[in-house]
Design a protein around this nucleic acid. Structure first.
Lengths: 188, 188
DNA sequence: ATCTATATGTACTGATCTGTACATGAAGGA
DNA sequence: TCCTTCATGTACAGATCAGTACATATAGAT
């Protein structure tokens, strides 16, 4: 029961859940793919739900770290960073392993708003919203809550659209829209 | 094997799939809820996939009919109708049975882009995009493809956000954003 | 070397999954 | 009345689901 063994399991499970979905991925499958025995798996995680929650925590950590860092690399000013978020999105969409947003999918598979998995997926979005709203405030937007929310709408919309309409340029269209909204929010 | 019996089955299956998800809903459950025998169910639909596809077809028909009609009731001009789409969304979100977009969920549960269910979900979005792009063109937008795509982004984003962050005012924020984008697209 | 505690592998439980075999029912025609 | 035809209900097959019992292996301590 080495502590880093657990991390390995979570990381591998994350990959499989992201690729194939939650309900569609059985514990037997994860046991085979991780090479660990079923007993050990259930020593680390008492239930499948616990494993899913751990995978979502890791995903949240990785994604927000990557996104925020990339945004801060791409632009200096808060306003520039709001826009740069969509360049980061475009990079994400181009990754070979890209399969949409894990939290949207988690919310879709566990629809009950009280379900721990749904709650945790919502928490991820709430934190992203806070980040964007913070940038909007720093940028001096008239109504930072509204602008932050709108940036999030464009981001989520671009993700969904990129998944279902692979073609097109959702990240670019979202970026153009974001620029118009930002200009309007700063002009007033 | 009366033809309208089949429609009944599809309609009921649609409700259950929408409420509980695709993988999480077994055929046994549908057989119980529809009151039909398993043999009859499999006479009408050779596989569960075929039933899901039929349910999605019905959903597409119902949703697009409702959405387009509502938009045309709410406003007269193409520009007004682009905006009214977000009032229609807000009404939808308020429905007690609202559980997000069935096609986003279908795409999330059947991720392979070649999967028939994924393909059909994509088709729904493509048709909505065409509708919005058509309105943008009629409204005289500079770049109707881009404006239509942006309206779709806002719509999808509002749906996802309404599901995961029940609070907030995603439809209203999306409407405000749409107005700004529309004004910009007509001004040039 | 022996004892103890923990990690592991196998085999299993009972439930549920999609889909089918088969026997029964009812309706219509001669 | 008898025969054919089609819809139905039940019971089941074979696979897979989440989770567990239990026996063995391996490690460290004395």
């Amino acid at each position: 029961m080495r502590p880093n063994k657990r991390d390995e399991l979570v990381s591998k499970a994350l990959d499989v859940f992201y690729r194939d979905g939650f309900h569609a991925t059985g514990m037997d499958r994860l046991v085979v793919e991780t090479g660990v025995s079923k007993t050990s798996m259930y020593k680390h995680f008492r239930t499948k739900e616990e494993l899913i929650l751990a995978a979502l925590r890791l995903r949240d950590e990785r994604f927000r770290n990557w996104f925020c860092r990339r945004v801060e690399e791409l632009a200096e000013t808060p306003a520039g960073r709001l826009i740069a978020g969509f360049d980061a999105l475009a990079e994400w969409f181009e990754e070979g392993k890209y399969r949409g947003c894990m939290f949207i999918k988690a919310g879709a598979e566990f629809q009950d708003a009280d379900h721990p998995i749904h709650v945790q997926a919502a928490e991820h979005k709430r934190m992203l919203l806070e980040y964007l709203t913070g940038l909007a405030r720093q940028a001096g937007a008239k109504d930072p809550e509204q602008l932050g929310s709108q940036m999030l709408l464009l981001k989520e919309g671009a993700i969904v659209t990129s998944v279902l309409l692979g073609s097109g340029t959702p990240a670019q269209d979202a970026k153009a829209a974001a620029q118009v909204l930002l200009d309007a929010a700063l002009a007033g």
